[in-house]
Nucleic acid binder design. Structure first.
Length: 327
DNA sequence: AAAATCAGCAACCGCAGTGAA
DNA sequence: TTTCACTGCGGTTGCTGATTT
């Protein structure tokens, strides 16, 4: 049995809203409210529109305190940070930006922010010897073992990515001494090595399930919202505070001899890494792969000697290793 | 100047979740 | 417990104006 349509599509007006329709809807809702039933609302208002269409028009355009126009850099940061962490959960992201709608943010991300990051990646990113994959098949083959050993990857894709904020808010003191010459960029998200190790293993590896039992599919959005509303200021402050860390790539994690890196599950990081490096070959890129966690490689870190001295901070411009698993 | 292409964004579609009956 | 109407969400489409060829 199919679902009954929400409205009679043949007798419903579609397309752009006229100012008259806007005025009717707006004045009715301001006077009477929605009545908790969008389906019957158009009739009451006297509009030949689908209830869903009315709801969308009200939420995205007519309701008070809607903010249109340019996004601020702070808003960019928040969007990037949240997208990095939770992916395209636009309603949750919108909840952190008063006056912005999920549709607005989604459009902004798809048309501008994404390209902004991508453009930066294309400009800055350089292939690294030994990690360059010539085609998608090679990449898939390399990842095959990982997926074979992880039958239901969704079961291990957990929420929240708990390490993300912890060190930003309470960084280890000794890290600041390694700050050297890196130029802070407001649209990058900073991870400590600990965070990277933890989040990579937590989110990618089967054994992480017990460590991070809250599954994204069952997590209430209010939990997520409160999680971010309690942390986002810390993130922003951290952006402003820790502006000198040296960014390195995942290869450096793999090759590093520091004690932290010994805890990393290398297969997971290689998978992430191979996906990232593969973006340097334009003809094999898919849209998501092109955008995936755009890791900033420091031009100066090119040999093992240097790698041992690098700061344990890593910089991502976007998260592939989350989105990769959501596909 | 006209045609083609691109970019931005409003609106639509369909699915999943929720709660009332 | 099941069914179903309704809501909310994310992905996608298609229109319009801007830009390029």
């Amino acid at each position: 049995m199919g679902r009954a349509p929400c409205c009679d599509k043949a007798n419903v007006k579609r397309g752009p809203w006229s100012p008259e329709e806007d005025a009717k809807l707006k004045s009715y809702i301001q006077l009477h409210g929605t009545g908790g039933n969008w389906i019957t609302l158009p009739q009451k208002v006297g509009l030949k529109r689908c209830g869903k269409s009315c709801r969308l028009r009200w939420l995205n355009y007519l309701r008070p305190n809607i903010k249109h126009g340019e996004f601020t850099e702070e808003e960019d940061n928040i969007i990037c940070s949240l997208y990095l962490s939770i992916g395209s959960r636009w309603s949750i992201i919108a909840a952190q930006l008063p006056g912005r709608t999920d549709n607005d943010i989604k459009n902004y991300w798809n048309t501008k922010l994404k390209k902004k990051l991508l453009g930066k990646q294309r400009k800055d990113h350089r292939p690294r010897t030994g990690y360059l994959h010539n085609n998608k098949l090679d990449m898939m083959k390399e990842n095959e073992n990982f997926f074979a050993s992880t039958p239901d990857i969704n079961a291990y894709y957990s929420w929240p990515p708990q390490p993300l904020f912890s060190t930003l808010i309470a960084p280890q003191n000794d890290l600041a001494e390694n700050s050297a010459n890196f130029q802070y960029s407001p649209d990058q998200v900073y991870f400590s090595q600990d965070q990277l190790c933890q989040s990579s293993t937590n989110q990618l590896i089967a054994s992480s399930a017990s460590m991070n039992p809250l599954n994204i599919n069952t997590c209430d959005s209010s939990v997520i919202s409160s999680y971010y509303s309690s942390n986002i200021n810390g993130v922003i402050n951290s952006f402003q505070e820790y502006n000198n860390y040296v960014p390195v790539g995942l290869n450096d994690v793999l090759n590093s001899t520091t004690s932290h890196s010994q805890q990393i599950d290398k297969s997971a990081l290689e998978m992430v890494n191979s996906s990232t490096i593969s973006t340097t070959s334009p003809d094999i890129s898919t849209s998501w792969e092109e955008l995936s966690p755009l890791i900033v490689y420091p031009p100066s870190v090119s040999n093992s000697e240097t790698q041992q001295e690098i700061s344990p901070y890593y910089v991502f411009e976007e998260s592939r290793y989350l989105g990769l698993l959501k596909q």
